[in-house]
Amino acid sequence: MTDIEKREEFDIEIDKTVGKPFIDDAKFSTRNVDVFYGDKQAIFDANIDIGKNQIIAMIGPSGCGKSTFLRCLNRMNDTIADCHISGDIRLDNEDVYQKHQDPVLLRARVGMVFQKPNPFPKSIYDNVAYGAKLHGLAGSKIELDELVENSLIRAGLFKEVKDSLHKPGTGLSGGQQQRLCIARTIAIDPEVILMDEPTSALDPIATAVIEELMIDLSAKYTIAIVTHSMQQAARVSQRTAYFHMGHLVEVNDTNTVFTNPEHQLTENYITGRFG
């Protein structure tokens, strides 16, 4: 990128999110969300709806705030001491930041898969069973066994690990570990799954497996995925949101965003002029 282009970029106004940020059948909807880390503002006035049983991809250059935004949805930012959030985030029309909203319950409804596979240093079985045990989802040992098996099957991991359920989850390959984390998340049957760059640490083959899995899961779950790969966004998502320096620039159907972006910044990014 030349200096002239760089200057041009700062000249481009980010006034209001363009495209179609709002839809009718919204699972999550955010209005006027601002996020601050101390004095530094990380998200400026984000307004977006996330549709039920859809995959929405959030793309944008590094440091644009897409992960921060994702972590607001299940209040993972609560653990960061100087992070504060204003605005309105609603799950099924219920404010997730209202006083009597229990973050534990929220996170049981809104699961999360992280960038780096992070299985617990326990057996594969215990990894999957942990959430269910925590929330008392299985009444008996047999039910729990079934739940673990089903979750692993749905995560496409069961065939590979059925003989080693009691070996440590940390001994699996990166791709398997990430699928284990997905199995762990779907074992508690959340309504929404947030994925924060779930394949950035994986090789292309493992990535393809997980992408397929995401498409399968979207039949049942609402999925929001943060990704650095535009190809991935194009392959898996129905809608795409483009973030730029804390601003939500454009939201639209994935096809439209990639073929006919409305905003100059979006076009610059997807055509590879920067980012």
Partner: peptide, 13 residues
């Protein structure tokens, strides 16, 4: 590693 804390919190612990 903080990733372990996040994993547990993310599951609703």
């Amino acid at each position: 590693p903080p990733s372990i804390r996040e994993a547990a919190l993310g599951l609703g612990a």
